[in-house]
Design a protein around this nucleic acid. Structure first.
Lengths: 255, 255
DNA sequence: ACCTGAACACCGTTCAAGT
DNA sequence: ACCTGAACACCGTTCAAGT
């Protein structure tokens, strides 16, 4: 009575129109991968609340029992969706994991470029899948022994090491970078999401926030007011990378 | 037909036994503060999932309609609970907000101590209320114009300024610190929570994680394996402060 | 082995009705 | 103005039954 535990696929992000797709083909068998793929699509379409066993059964043209045969419960499904998206985001990075039987030896990248690649890979994945930041954070703190945590930690950590951070600070620096990446990218994703379109009302969103900040009480909020413009005018990607650079400066300074 | 919008109280964390309390007194009127207080208690007792309108009505000895008269919906209730706990955590800090008609002038604190006080205030609040990290992160990214975001941002930012960080880096440094604090404290809270007791099986939790990390494939996970011990043996509070110091070192270095 | 779908115990929210 | 509580539309999950 043990369900099959197939390894989670890597490329589970099949792009489709955001609209609800009607029940379609169902000639091929139901697999853990197909379920995970559908889960990712539902999460992308309607964020957190979009993933429902009802919606899932409709999209896959089955009953809930069929899904529960492949997946233990909803949180396992969320873990699988997270793992799939993270794997896809990280495999393009400079630390490509299995590497095969030694391919044609990629050109070496500078440590700075390596770090940027990893950080932006996660940044872009979170922008494409806004639910990812929350899920990743939850999974990392809830089960550090899971598959996802070491995968992310390793990718960042290898860059930390390559950049010459002293060994005593490896854990601290990697943790700081990890938390910053998730937090900043998550915030950016929320900004991008506001208003539906990827860039439609993003400016309006930031304008509203900036304006609200400038209307705060000058006595209680002098700092926030003074920084309101800095927040509205910045380029998000550049700002994100500036944060990475700032942390790395601290990590290599000896701390 | 507009419900009253009383200002959210500051000290809403009334400590009570963790067990479910039976329906009690109900002589006094229902207020937004009393509802928020009960919400915080339910969240503390059973994390995220513990806050339910059913549980809330039972604890307050009312029907759901009564609660909906004071509070628009569940997410507003979560916002209020977050705001109350954050206010309590921050009011002890070095930047005490209204300050009254200039009291007896507190002894000046060094910028380093000020930063530590603010950071540890949030750290402790998150450890006492593990749901806080997620809620705060969600609220900060979803509505930067809300009441909570500027409150937290200001507290951290004033310390950043006091520490002599160049103005061009204020926003970046404050963001990095904020995300680090939420992430690291959230992770610590999850560790503490594992096993119910505050310190009961925390060691076991970290041991399990550390052991799992050391059993990873040496080819794919050299870095994670090498820091497995660093993660198990560290003192959490010291590690947390080391992260703060690391980011500040980067921020003051010129970045 | 794999799938079906009715059923169960919940949940947030509404709203006519009371005081 | 404030509260009651039945009702609604959902949700995750189970499980006897089919193939």
């Amino acid at each position: 009575v043990t369900p099959p535990r197939t390894r989670s696929g890597t490329g589970a992000t099949a792009k489709t129109g955001a609209g609800a797709r009607k029940a379609e083909r169902r000639s091929d068998a139901l697999t853990r991968e197909r379920i995970t793929e559908a889960a990712v699509e539902l999460l992308d379409a309607a964020d957190e609340g979009g993933l429902t066993f009802r919606a899932l059964t409709q999209r896959l043209a089955t009953g809930p029992g069929a899904i529960y045969w492949h997946v233990a419960n909803k949180s396992e499904l969320l873990e699988a969706a997270t793992a799939a998206v993270v794997a896809a985001a990280l495999e393009a990075g400079p630390v490509s994991p299995p590497a095969g039987p030694s391919g044609p030896a990629k050109p070496p990248v500078s440590p700075q470029d390596g770090m940027r690649t990893v950080a932006l890979g996660l940044y872009d994945a979170i922008e494409a899948h806004p639910w990812l930041a929350t899920q990743l954070a939850a999974q990392i703190s809830r089960s550090p022994w899971g598959a996802v945590t070491p995968r992310v930690f390793e990718s960042i950590g290898q860059q930390v090491r390559a950049l010459g951070v002293p060994e005593g600070s490896w854990f601290t620096a990697t943790s700081a970078l990890l938390h910053y990446i998730l937090g900043a990218a998550g915030q950016n994703a929320a900004n991008s999401e506001a208003g539906g379109g990827p860039h439609a009302s993003r400016g309006a969103f930031l304008d509203a926030a900036s304006t609200a900040w400038k209307e705060l009480d000058p006595d209680d909020y002098p700092f926030t007011r003074s920084v309101a413009d800095q927040m509205r005018t910045h380029d998000d990607r550049a700002e994100f990378l500036a944060g990475i650079a700032l942390i790395l400066a601290g990590a290599t300074a000896g701390a």
